[in-house]
Nucleic acid binder design. Sequence first.
DNA 1: AGCAAGTTTTAGTAGTCGCTAAAATAGTTG
DNA 2: CAACTATTTTAGCGACTACTAAAACTTGCT
Lengths: 105, 105
Amino acid sequence: MDAVKIIAEPRRREILRLCWHGERAAGDLADAFEITFGAVSQHLKVLRDAGLVTVRRDGTRRYYRANPTALGPLAAYLEAQWGRQLDRLTELAEAAESDSGGTRA
Amino acid sequence: MDAVKIIAEPRRREILRLCWHGERAAGDLADAFEITFGAVSQHLKVLRDAGLVTVRRDGTRRYYRANPTALGPLAAYLEAQWGRQLDRLTELAEAAESDSGGTRA
DNA sequence: AGCAAGTTTTAGTAGTCGCTAAAATAGTTG
DNA sequence: CAACTATTTTAGCGACTACTAAAACTTGCT
């Protein structure tokens, strides 16, 4: 699974967001969703395998944290695909906003 | 289908790339792939419905062109999700490059 | 009208994805 | 070792996705 597909899943983006600024126990992360602990653990495995999160073991707990540097290759990929347009994404956001009023992503 | 999932599909990203700097007939686009014309047309429909491409009819041909402004909402979404980290993506790319040498996305 | 070229749409299919429920694993404590 | 907590893994399922092949539609030409 390539990185783009991995972060295309809303639940995984939310997980990344939750452990972006500091580590979070797997159980804590799971509590943030209404799905099963098992399901969250599966998402964590995907993120782990892609190197998008790192794990620290402490007792029976696993503490997860987003790994920003792993997003580097993703950035390189986006750069290659979208070129300089990427730099202007925010501008484009505003333009589209005033054009259509739609904010759907 | 949200925009993030739409561009998660490699074939669709390639289509967008092909008609990014100028319009391309549907047939031309289809020729760039080894899949069926029909399959490409289906991708075009997805992109069309999301407003990510615009169409110009000329005779029996349909000329497609990527619509950068439609990526605005996507940008807004990414901004909201990733915040300022997005600005540093290129930096991160370089860091990851020298760390692991891997460029897989 | 008939025919051909370009494109879209439909029906059906194999593979993938995210989920649940339950079993298995790892670590801590008595 | 047994009991308990935290987490991972497995098996199975329904929904969805990208694809092929074929039919339908559109436009231009004669």
